[in-house]
């Protein structure tokens, strides 16, 4: 039925005529647009009427207490969870709710998980090779050859994340912090337009945290980066705009100083009566 009703709109290009994997259209500003999204798990509203826009090239931090819906929000953007209501658009052309996980990944949304997951049996170099944006169907993978161009690209990312020296070692030997960087490197190999980074500094030492902050800020501008993080010190060191989530919707948004002085935020973080 929706197909037929669409045909009656003669003033615009029918949706089914636009190629599904066309480039992301950010002429209108936002690269990610979420509106009125609600998800319910067994009666529990994990996300409640969430609306959020991320501009192209922005570095956005998302904070919030446990259970605020941060990870669920990422699940929705990457297609792992489908919302009950609402709309999620990537640029002004791609409706993410109609796309599968691999499609969303190839559109240019990369995600780093809370727990670093790298392929431990493969070398760091091979981990990056698999992550590289390429034709990922079965037969092209079977016949793929490594060109000088791809090697250069992998070496470039290795330098960015500082793992050049270890490139032929199995990823299983890396420390926790190094695995996090390898994950970010794998994201960069996909040349994503939008990076979703879930708790990048969990379990890192001070120095590792500083390097991660440098890495993420250097990425912003070229890519849009969304960071979900608990560590306030870290958020303060990288954030330009901060969004506070609470019980599945946006509680406050602004610079770090603005939100940390917001009475609602103080109440949520410090408890009632504070």
């Amino acid at each position: 039925m929706s197909f037929i009703s669409e045909l009656s709109h003669r003033d615009r290009v029918f949706d089914f005529l636009t190629p599904t994997l066309s480039p992301v259209d950010v002429r209108h500003g936002p690269i990610l647009y979420m509106d009125g999204v609600t998800v319910t798990f067994d009666g529990f509203r994990a996300i409640n009427d969430l609306s959020l826009t991320i501009d192209d090239g922005e570095l956005r931090c998302i904070i919030g207490p446990n259970g605020a819906g941060k990870t669920t929000m990422m699940d929705i953007i990457t297609g792992k969870t489908r919302p009950d209501t609402g709309s999620v658009w990537f640029g002004s052309r791609h409706n993410l709710l109609t796309k599968s996980e691999p499609d969303i990944a190839s559109l240019g949304i990369g995600r780093k998980f809370q727990k670093p997951t790298v392929f431990e049996a493969l070398s760091i170099f091979e981990n990056l090779e698999l992550a590289m944006s390429a034709d990922k169907r079965v037969f092209p993978s079977l016949t793929a050859r490594m060109t000088g161009e791809t090697i250069d690209r992998i070496e470039e990312v290795l330098t960015t994340v500082g793992l050049t020296r270890l490139r032929h070692r199995a990823a299983g030997i890396l420390s926790h912090g190094q695995k996090q960087w390898l994950e970010i490197g794998m994201l960069l190999m996909q040349k994503p337009r939008l990076l979703l980074v879930d708790e990048p500094v969990a379990g890192m030492t001070e120095q590792e945290m500083e390097r991660t902050a440098e890495l993420l800020t250097s990425l912003a501008g070229k890519q849009s980066v969304v960071v979900v993080e608990h560590d306030m010190g870290f958020v303060r060191s990288i954030a330009r705009t901060v969004t506070v989530l609470h019980q599945g919707s946006v509680l406050a948004e602004g610079t770090m100083d603005q939100v940390s002085n917001d009475p609602k935020v103080i109440e949520v973080y410090l408890g009632e009566g504070a």
Partner: peptide
């Protein structure tokens, strides 16, 4: 070793 991760990289 990590099926879900592979899927997120865009492999079917």
């Amino acid at each position: 070793d990590a099926e879900a991760r592979t899927r997120f990289l865009g492999y079917r």
